[in-house]
Every structure is written in structure tokens, then in C-alpha cells.
Design a protein around this nucleic acid. Sequence first.
DNA 1: TTAATTGGGTACCATTTTAGTCCTGTATAA
DNA 2: TTATACAGGACTAAAATGGTACCCAATTAA
Lengths: 154, 154
Amino acid sequence: MLKLSRLTDYAAVVMAQIARHHQASHTAADLAEAVQLPHPTVSKTLKMLVKAGLLESQRGVQGGYRLARPASQITAADIISAIEGPVAMTECSQAEGECELAATCGVADNWQRVSLAIRTLLESVTLAHLADTAPIKLPVQLPIQSISLSAASA
Amino acid sequence: MLKLSRLTDYAAVVMAQIARHHQASHTAADLAEAVQLPHPTVSKTLKMLVKAGLLESQRGVQGGYRLARPASQITAADIISAIEGPVAMTECSQAEGECELAATCGVADNWQRVSLAIRTLLESVTLAHLADTAPIKLPVQLPIQSISLSAASA
DNA sequence: TTAATTGGGTACCATTTTAGTCCTGTATAA
DNA sequence: TTATACAGGACTAAAATGGTACCCAATTAA
């Protein structure tokens, strides 16, 4: 499936919710209500997003969460890595050559290039795009050109 | 991480191995030896690839596995979906609107577009590319243009 | 026709990952 | 000072994943 974990999904939904009302501060309880998910789970997700620097939090009365920067400067890749860690398709495309099968593998390098292309794609999609109810019409063509999967030939 | 399962990784390595010697028939045992993985695991992977129509098998003496079609006509997306099922980033991007949170979600459509872009990218990478020890220099720019993530605006 | 070879299918178990919950602590504003 | 709300971590339950074993089916050559 190559799919996102459920928590990552929640994170995107919650971030979009905050982005649509970015002027206000949102409590975990309000957000949980808005997106119809259990409070503790939403809370956990929010904490991860704070730790990743995508949200800022304020404790106490009138506290809550706000975007740490404009939605146009937060990418899908940011949200995914906040929850799941770095975007990479294979174990070996993140850690440095720790794979003892490297000798017989023969596809590692090319997987890394594919990985890079996907990462670049995800970096070109912003929270502003995701939160928008209109279809994305972002310039995805452009960043992909800069990938061209031959990047590693340098 | 957005990562492939380990079996998918194995599948890619095994497929690449077969692709590099596509004239011969490969037994599960030979392949397991070549890629240094346990025989039963490789065997299981091979069966999935056969079921997906990417490999053909021949039983009996002198039997083994061969590519069902040229490596240039087998894509990374084919291999991934053979093992993990359809390439999709979220639950709801494969099944038809079964998500009861759709009302409060608000990001489903856009995730689907991202999903589509990734799928198209993976479809543009062939087994021939993966098996090649030289860096991929494939025309990834072109298919991406056809995505442009505005496809769903139609 | 029979024996050896090789894949096919299924069921099972162990491990890991994921998800969800709870508890206790800390900061803040009224 | 008290109610509110986030911070951090521990814990548990559930699910997915990976790996193994076993027995069956097909093919071929002697």
C-alpha cells in the first residue's frame, strides 16, 4: 500500500483544521471535537507536531496550539516526517550503508533516487494546498524536473 | 517513513536478479542463494509475484521462474502492488468513500491527488531501470507533467 | 510408471509496530 | 490560588508483518 500511518493521517487533518482558522488558538479538546477523533489521540499527535516544530503551544487558560509558521511554508513532507520520521522508501535509504546485503542487492541506489523524487514531490505540496477545499493545482511539474532521478549521477 | 515492507524490498531485489539474467530459468533455491536470503521467504515472495502476473513459473525438473514480460514493461508500481496491494497513501484513497470522517476530514481529495502523483512516478520507473547498475536517467519529467495534480479538476 | 525435482497453497507462530489510554507534572491566566 | 491546558512518559491491547513448516501438485527423465 505504501500508505501513511493512521496517526499521520490524523496529523494532516488536524493541521488543516488549524490552518483554516489560523488566527485563533486551538485547544486539543476543540480540535478533537472538530475532527471527531478521541481527545487523547489528538493530543498525542499535537505533541508530536510541536516537537517537530510545526506547531507552537501555549499552556494554561486560553492556551492551545497555533501554526509555527504560515501554512504555505509547511509541507506534506514536514507533516509526514513529524509523525513517521524521515520520508524514505527503504531502510537503507536513510541509514548509511548498514545493509549487509548491499553486495547482492544491486537496487539500493536506484531506490534511493525514487525515494528522493517522492520526497521532493511531497515537499512541493504545502499545508495551504491540503487545507484548501479546491483541487490542488500546484506547480508540481517544476520541482520534479529538478529531480529527474539523475541527480545522483553528479 | 512511508516505507516499503521488507518483503517488497526482497521482491525488487529478486526481480532485478532475474531481470539481469532473463534468458535463464531461476529456481527459488538459486535465487535465495544469489540474494542471500532464506529460501522459504524468497519462495513466498516469488509466489506473490507469480500471482500478480509479473513472473511465470514452471514446475518440475528444470523448472523455475522467468519474467512474464520484458523488464522494461514491469514497473516499480507493479512490484509494490504485487506485494502490498494498490499504491495509495490513505485508506480512503483506495476504497470508495467508506470513511465516516469524510465530513470533518477535508483533506481526502487532495491526498488522493498526491497519491496519484506518486503512483504515476512509480509507474514510470521500470524493472529495467532498477536492475541497471547505472543511475536511473529515465524520463521522469514527462509523466509527471501529465499528473500536475490538477487531474481531478476535470 | 516411477522417482526425483520443483513450485503451490495453507496454516501457524513469533515479533514488531501501531494505536490508544492514562497518569503525573508544569505553566499560565484570571 | 485555582482552574485550565499542555508536556512527558509509561503501559497495554491490537494488528500487521515476517518467517517457517508441512503437505500437495505438476513435470520430466530414467
